[in-house]
Design a protein around this nucleic acid. Structure first.
Length: 195
DNA sequence: AGCACGATGCTCT
DNA sequence: GAGCATCGTGCTT
């Protein structure tokens, strides 16, 4: 059985966690079945001073999970349709999280494709839909198996295969936050899937 | 294959 | 009441 990423993995600088989550295996137990995908894209949101982060508004009902201990899920709803999965990083009271933006399905692929009506899983709303992740998963601990959602050690992805760039969708966020290269993604969008 | 736009509802001011 | 860490459709090239 693969190692579940421990709390100490998340209790580190957010950029580092965002980078190292590339290639990790996101596991979801849905209706008793195991679904999984390798993470191919992430974004870092770092502290209240990051004006691209929800935490810019300080501690609110929505953002309180980001202020909690690392290794928990921060799931929020946006644009009237979509749930977004984030993982909380850094020490307690430091509001930071990594948005998981895309996965490459590797287990339960047929179920995932069916849930997506054959469409892709590259996009934060799409992967949440594919894995049945909603507000019910907000706040759960990702470092154990109780919440039916966790992250396992995956493929080591060489530095040269990871592209950095500005985060997506921050239209009205002021500089320099708008252009910070805090998005990480697999070059060419595909990982070599091995066992 | 690329762009424009409308859907849709929750969160914060 | 405005704005939103998006997605899918439908129309144009």
């Amino acid at each position: 059985m693969r190692r579940i990423l421990p709390r100490s993995f998340y209790d580190r600088p957010t950029l580092r966690v965002a980078h190292e989550l590339i290639g990790a295996r996101l596991v979801r137990i849905l209706d008793g079945q195991r679904l999984a995908g390798l993470i191919t894209e992430t974004e870092a949101y770092v502290g209240e001073t990051d004006l691209g982060s929800h935490a810019r508004a300080g501690r609110t009902l929505r953002t309180q999970v980001m202020y909690g201990p690392p290794g928990h899920a921060y799931v929020y709803f946006t644009y009237g349709n979509h749930w977004m999965l984030n993982v909380v990083c850094e020490e307690e009271n430091m509001p930071a999280a990594v948005l998981v933006r895309a996965i490459q399905p590797v287990e339960g692929v047929d179920v995932i494709l069916k849930r997506r009506s054959g469409r892709d899983t590259f996009g934060p709303g799409k992967l949440a839909q594919a894995l049945g992740i909603t507000g019910k998963e907000n706040g759960i601990d990702l470092t154990g198996r109780n919440g039916q959602l966790w992250i396992e050690q995956g493929l080591p992805v060489p530095e040269r295969l990871v592209t950095k760039g500005p985060r997506v969708g921050l239209y009205s966020v002021p500089e320099p936050w708008k252009s910070k290269p805090w998005r990480f993604l697999v070059k060419g969008w595909k990982l070599e899937v091995g066992e």
